[in-house]
Structures are given as C-alpha cells and as structure tokens.
C-alpha cells in the first residue's frame, strides 16, 4: 500500500475573496480507503472537484500515476470513477441503459458495459430493477445506482462523495459492505460527515477546514493523539468524589487538571498526552476524567483512591472517537 496513485500538490482555489482550498497537498496510496473529512464549507467538494478534473485549480496540480489530471490527459480520467453526493440519474433511462450509456462515455464497448452493468446491479441488489426507469426507484435504490454508475468502467480509483447520505440502514449496510469489498482491489476516496462511516471504512483520513489540510493519519492514530481523549468514569465508595479527586491529583502530580468549564489550562499548558479534563460526572457518586490514553493511568488512579480510604465501584471507559478528534480540530461552531 505504499505506491502513490494519486498526488495533489499545492492545490489552491479561490472564489472571489474566499480561498476555498489553500495549498492542499496529499498522497493517496494504492488500495487504501482514504477519507476526506471536514465541516460544511470546509472545501471538501471543491477539493474533490479539482481532484476529479471538474474544476480547474488556480494553483497546484493533481496527478494520477504521474499523469496530470488537468491539461487534457483523458487517460487519467478513465482511471477515476466519481459518485457525486447528489443522485444524478437519467430519469427516462432504465437502470441498465444508463449503465451502458455511461460505460460507453468512458470508452467501454457496449457489450462489456452491459455485462458490467448487470454485475453491478446484482452486487448492489438492483437486478430486479434492471429494466425499470430510474424515476421509478426508491431513494435508496437511486443512491445505489448512483454508486454503480461510478464503477461501470472499472476505474482504478473510486471517489465517493457522501456515499451513505440519505440511505436507510439496510442500504447503508449494503453499500458499506460493497465499499469494503472493493477496498484493496481499488483505491477509494470518500468524503463524509459521518464519522462512524469514516471510522469503519477508511484506512486513513484527512481532515480539512477553511480549505486547509489539518491532519492526515489513520483513525486509530488520530484518536490516540488528538482530541481530549478517552472518558473514564469511576464510581466512588467510602469517600466523597472530591476526596477522590484530591487523591488522584496527589498521585499524579505531573498531570494537569482542568475543569470542563474552565477556559484555559493551568500555566504552563501541559503536553497534549498529559492533559486531563475533569468532566461533569453522570452521578453524584462518580468522578469523570477525560484524557489521551487515560486507560493507561487507571491502575495508578485506583491505587490513589484506595490509599485515600475509598473504593472504586463501577468503571466505565468510553474510547475517544473520530468525532471527538474532528470536533477538537474544527471546533463546535456551526457552519453554513
């Protein structure tokens, strides 16, 4: 998975005074599922449009296997399949007819396009609808056909823009499993708001905001290193939660503690891996702490409480999620 199939370098796009994408550079490796995450208006769709050649960048370049996407290299395009966020279908064509048509547009012979079309319809659970007009399909079926249209020319790279948006749970599972089945055989780039989707599917994710690439890494590594960490909730017996907190602070003098309501860390601010947040506990007899890799500190914390005369009852550990990472990087302010 080390071979770079798609490379974007310094991609920049401005619309008037707004810089939608600002010097975006990224490498996508062969066979990986690459997630592109960002809030609304972050520049995801603009980035994807430039990567697919639909939009000319003001600066920078995109290449697929070294072939420039911009500048008329048709071969580069035939290697990419794009499934747009909106369901874009020809309502007066049947499912199979549109697969044949779009296949031919990519230079595939009608016979092969038809054969691939039938295979895709079967894989996406649409065989029974092959001769039905797309206008007669349900919303979920249309979304699946939308995905099939991106694949009929057997592209090496598949770009999926919000593939699970608007799908019912059954269709979501089907599409997700299908994308998973494609992984390794194809390189997949997907944009999504759905952190669960990205976490389940993506080998690596990039998070962009205000047109700037903030981070690229595996979901596991991002969860381990970014955000406010895992949440540890402990039921305290024999002593009060306040006494338990004091014992924890005493046992871990090198750690900085901050109330969730507090605006700033104690000075000087600790390293990210040593930050702990005291959160509002769900019950009066509990303490709640959040921090990167807080589970590693659990034995020390329990010992401290026991030394202070307390006992630990229930222990709840909720792992840091990609959504926590996303919010940590992009903030809680509403967009658009």
């Amino acid at each position: 998975m080390n071979k770079v199939v798609l490379q974007a370098q310094g991609l920049t796009k401005k619309f008037g005074s707004l810089t939608a994408v600002d010097e975006l550079s990224l490498d996508v490796y062969q066979g990986e599922v690459f997630g592109l995450l960002g809030p609304n208006g972050a520049g995801k769709t603009t980035s994807i449009s430039m990567i697919c050649g639909l939009l000319e960048p003001d600066a920078g370049s995109v290449s697929i296997h070294g072939l420039p996407v911009h500048g008329g290299q048709v071969e580069a395009f035939t290697r990419v399949g794009v499934c747009p966020q909106e369901t874009i279908l020809w309502e007066k064509l049947t499912c199979l007819e549109q697969l044949e048509f779009i296949g031919e547009m990519y230079g595939v012979s009608r016979k092969v396009a038809r054969q691939r079309g039938e295979e895709l319809l079967a894989l996406l659970g649409l065989s029974e609808k092959r001769d039905k007009l797309s206008a007669t399909l349900s919303g979920g079926m249309k979304r699946r056909l939308n995905v099939a249209l991106a694949l009929v020319h057997d592209p090496e790279i598949l770009v999926l823009d919000e593939p699970e948006a608007g799908l019912d749970p059954q269709s979501r599972v089907l599409v997700r499993e299908y994308i998973r089945s494609l992984a390794k055989k194809k390189t997949i780039i997907l944009t999504t708001h759905n952190m669960d989707e990205a976490e389940r599917l993506a080998d690596r994710v990039a998070i962009i905001d205000h047109g700037v690439l903030l981070v690229v890494d595996t979901p596991e590594e991002l969860k381990r290193t970014i955000g406010e960490g895992d949440v540890l909730e402990l039921e305290i017996k024999e002593i009060s939660p306040e006494q338990a907190m004091a014992a924890i602070e005493e046992a871990l003098p090198d750690l900085s503690l901050r109330s969730e309501q507090s605006a700033a860390w104690q000075s000087p601010p600790p390293q990210e891996a040593d930050r702990f947040v005291v959160e509002n506990a769900p019950r009066d007899d509990m303490v709640s702490l959040r921090g990167i890799n807080i589970a590693d500190k659990l034995p020390t914390i329990i010992n401290a409480i026991q030394r202070a005369g307390g006992q630990v009852g229930e222990i709840h550990l909720r792992a840091n999620t990609l959504e926590d990472v996303f919010i940590a990087l992009t903030g809680r302010r509403l967009r658009e």
Partner: peptide
C-alpha cells in the same frame, strides 16, 4: 438541470 451533464463532464465528453 438534473446534473447529468456534470456526470458526462467527468467522462470528458
């Protein structure tokens, strides 16, 4: 209007 032209645009028609 339907956006299908965008899909065709991707194919470099």
């Amino acid at each position: 209007e339907s956006g299908t032209l965008q899909r065709l645009k991707i194919t470099r028609l």
